[in-house]
Amino acid sequence: MAQLLFFYLAGVIVLTAILVVGLRNPIYSVLSLLIMFFHVAGLYVSLHAEFLAAVQIIVYAGAILVLYLFVVMLLNVKREDRYHYQFPIGALLGVAILTEAVVLAIQRGYSEDVVPSPPTSELSFTGNTEAIGESLFTTYLLPFEIASLILLVAMIGAIILAKKDILTR
């Protein structure tokens, strides 16, 4: 049952991910990305990471993708053919990465355990929201703060780029 669920989710993720770059209409690309985000969230739920699943939908599907859609609609591009000329390069890179994945899979050998079993440590008893908070603010405090600093820099950078005149004034 768990394997069936995993293969369904993984299959849809791969399919919609291909559709995102393959479809000609950018609105449809955005929508298939939306379906992909939902299935990634489903994958998190099947791993008992409900908090991550909810955050995945709130942040990616609810905010970032809405902004994508906003931009796509504002530009009003019915068809975007420009990027489809990159197909040969994309195919080359894709084949290289696929070969790598296959080689790695053969080296690792076949494993019965496709779906990683949920963690059985004491973390699973306290609830995964608490567990994430606990590890973010103790073990991974420095990476967490660095990540937020990088985001802040990106935000200020975007404002500076958009409002060049505030420096000259």
């Binding site: 908090f51 905010a63 809405v66």
Partner: peptide, 8 residues
């Protein structure tokens, strides 16, 4: 969070 996710 579930409610916030779906209202978005």
């Amino acid at each position: 969070l579930y409610i916030l996710a779906f209202t978005s």
